[in-house]
């Protein structure tokens, strides 16, 4: 008997979701922002399946970005910000990968990347903004010309044009749309009809999802249609945008999930320390990614004590008084 007949064909495990949708060389977008609502369980599964040559398109994806770059899954990166707030002012493996010329990278800003996802979602080829005028973001093309012809790589980083509606000099920057092969995101709720509800800030998750060819959503829980359709103003995505649904409680750990759990300061500090050293980072991956047999196993390693410490007060949304040093 299937409890969720409406989404039965889309409900699957992490292994199937990744093997079906996250291919070698694919262009990937990640939901969440720095230390919040990163789809970590999916990121770990991508590492476990040793997906290669990913073209990652990011605004400010912190922890998932750093794990994927550090594990060698990423070949090409378009990025606005590689940092984890006070827990890593610059994401450590991202920093090393750039300094060692291990990845191809191109810089944009957060708003530029968000607009590029929006353009993809709107099915328009480019989008104008004033942001970037005078900045070296618009002076340095990160990617060499030979990869500009490759699939899903824009033929140039940006273009400038005169505002066609003005007689006076008025320059704008044009940014190429992004249409990732797959977007992965973590939500608080998915209805048993497939409707997605994200709580707290949505960052650019909605634009990223609508811009993508395929969308994997992990969630804290699957809830009845009667619940998710009672207050539809709260919902983020209709069911038809979602291709794979995986129920993964604590699936954003060690990043936070509003209303459910805070970020895990101890783990983020441990990660930064281990990421600083190549050998220790391999140990980190062995211990926390390759070496875990299931998500339950991962959470067991995190431990009940920390799970309880970071558990959010459901009214306040975070874990008040949590030791965040």
């Amino acid at each position: 008997m299937n409890r969720y007949p409406e989404i039965a064909d889309r409900l699957m495990g992490l292994d199937e979701a990744v093997s079906r949708f996250v291919k070698d060389g694919c262009q990937l977008a990640i939901g969440g922002f720095t230390i919040t609502r990163n789809p970590m369980a999916v990121a770990y599964e991508i590492v476990r399946q040793r997906v290669k040559d990913i073209h990652l398109v990011c605004h400010s994806n912190g922890q998932a970005l750093d794990v994927l770059v550090g594990a060698g899954c990423v070949r090409r990166l378009e990025i606005a910000y590689g940092g984890n707030g006070r827990y890593a002012p610059t994401c450590v493996r991202f920093k090393k990968a750039v300094q060692r010329s291990e990845i191809e990278f191109e810089d944009y800003s957060n708003y530029q990347m968000s607009l590029r996802f929006l353009a993809g979602a709107l099915s328009i080829p480019f989008i104008p903004t004033k942001s970037g005028l005078g900045s070296d973001l618009m002076n340095y093309e990160g990617f060499p010309p030979d990869i500009r012809r490759e699939k899903k790589v824009a033929s140039k980083k940006y273009a400038k044009m005169q505002n066609p509606f003005s007689e006076q000099r008025d320059e704008v920057v044009l940014l190429p749309a992004l249409t990732p092969d797959v977007t992965i995101l973590h939500a608080q709720f998915v209805g048993d009809d497939g409707t997605v509800r994200m709580k707290g800030l949505t960052f650019a998750d909605i634009e990223q999802a609508k811009a993508a060819d395929a969308v994997i959503v992990t969630c804290e829980d699957i809830v009845p249609r009667s619940f998710i359709r009672t207050d539809p103003d709260q919902n983020s995505l209709p069911p038809f945008f979602v291709d794979a649904i995986v129920k993964v409680p604590y699936g954003a750990h060690p990043t936070a999930c509003y209303g459910f759990y805070d970020y895990d300061p101890k783990h983020l500090n441990l990660y930064r320390k281990m990421a600083e050293d190549d050998a220790l980072f391999r140990e980190y991956l062995d211990e926390w990614v390759y070496g875990v047999s299931s998500w339950e196993d991962y959470l067991t390693k995190v431990g009940m004590e920390m799970i309880l410490k970071i558990k959010a007060n459901p009214v306040i949304g975070y874990a008040p008084g949590l030791d965040r040093k």
């Binding site: 922002f33 720095t34 230390i35 609502r37 707030g85 827990y87 936070a256 306040i316 949304g317």
Partner: peptide, 27 residues
Amino acid sequence: LDEIPMAVADLRAMAGTSLNSGLIEAF
């Protein structure tokens, strides 16, 4: 801001707000 956020995506930046939105709205 009953507690100080440690990143701009900290849950403390989305608690007690008048509105929670996203990047496009913020800009």
